[in-house]
């Protein structure tokens, strides 16, 4: 039992990182209704911008964090213009494949600029451990949890309490109607994409600082973990992204402990497959999916 609880604690810490990645994914999907496979690689490019600053100029943590976020936003803007803004809105598959080839492009560009396998990244609170009775948690994980919680609250406030958030929801609900009502849909989409990239940059900084290293494979990892977490919760749902991330983290941690490293990923994919089979809209997205299908069947 004690093992199980400690695993859950570890899982929640990893899950917080997954949740942050899933939040960015879900924000992009919510406003575009299309999937950005290049989300992870854009974060990876940002983290490498931070690494470059760290290695080249021995910059401080704050500058590195800012460089990471800016790098992710710049690459994100490139992806948004090329793969989403420039492609017809009803061609979702074309956008997705386009974001995939741009992923390959980003990965190759980064590998050319940074040819080694791994690069060092400055750690924050790297060795500190917080103890709760018999249980313990790395301080960096605790920081990640806190920042994830703040990010969720900030995002909810942005989407549900501001004028910009109202525009985002309007574009998400019905882009044509939003345009007629005077919303600059292109700008709102671009800004929401930039917000998601900034959030991704923050997540990437925290994850890289926790690991104290970075590889070009980080892009693949971030895309898939974020995607699985988002799909578990349901696409476009903010609470779903958090739930999906934490659930994925906890299940992975327990599978690792009880079944071993080979089986961990297998269990994660089984979880996803089973959830989608029985709830085809994800855990928190089922109601939205059903509502949309009901609306379609009325038309």
């Amino acid at each position: 039992m004690a093992d199980f609880l400690q695993n859950c604690l570890d899982g929640i810490a990893t899950g917080a990182a997954y949740a942050l990645l899933a939040l960015g994914f879900t924000l992009i999907f919510g406003v575009l209704r299309r999937l950005n496979l290049s989300y992870g690689p854009s974060i990876m490019a940002g983290v490498f911008a931070g690494t470059a600053l760290y290695m080249g100029f021995n910059a401080g943590l704050a500058e590195i964090a800012i460089a990471t976020v800016i790098g992710a936003v710049v690459v994100g803007a490139y992806i948004e213009r090329l793969c989403f803004w420039a492609i017809r809105k009803d061609m979702a598959v074309a956008s997705m494949v386009s974001s995939f080839v741009i992923w390959m492009q980003i990965e190759e560009a980064v590998t050319l600029l940074f040819p080694d396998r791994t690069y060092a990244f400055p750690g924050i609170l790297a060795d500190a451990v917080v103890e709760f009775g018999p249980f313990f948690l790395r301080a960096s994980s605790l920081a990640m949890l806190a920042i994830a919680a703040i990010a969720v609250l900030g995002l909810l406030a942005l989407i549900y309490r501001t004028h910009f958030g109202l525009a985002v929801r309007a574009v998400s609900e019905n882009p044509e109607a939003a345009r007629v009502a005077g919303v600059n849909t292109g700008l709102v989409t671009f800004l929401a994409f930039a917000c998601a990239s900034a959030l991704g940059g923050l997540a990437g900084f925290l994850i890289a600082a926790g690991d104290q290293q970075i590889t070009p494979l980080f892009g693949l990892w971030a895309t898939f973990k974020g995607l699985i977490a988002m799909m578990l919760g349901g696409m476009g749902s903010i609470p779903g992204a958090v739930l999906g991330g934490l659930l994925l983290g906890v299940v992975e941690a327990n599978a690792l402990w009880y079944l071993g490293v080979e089986t961990r990923d297998l269990v994660a994919y089984m979880l996803l497959f089973v959830v989608l089979t029985f709830r085809p809209g994800g855990l928190m997205g089922q109601a939205a999916l059903m509502a949309r299908r009901a609306a379609e069947s009325r038309v």
Binding site: L35, A92, L227, I228, M231, M235, E262, T263, D265, L266, Y269, M270, L272, F273, L276, T277, P280, G281, G282
Partner: peptide, 23 residues
């Protein structure tokens, strides 16, 4: 089992299936 799943959810379900096979 994936008959009820559509669109991007189907895409991700097939991805999960393929990774399950590989693992």
């Amino acid at each position: 089992p994936t008959l009820r799943i559509r669109g991007l959810y189907f895409a991700i379900a097939t991805l999960a299936f393929a990774e399950m096979v590989r693992l």
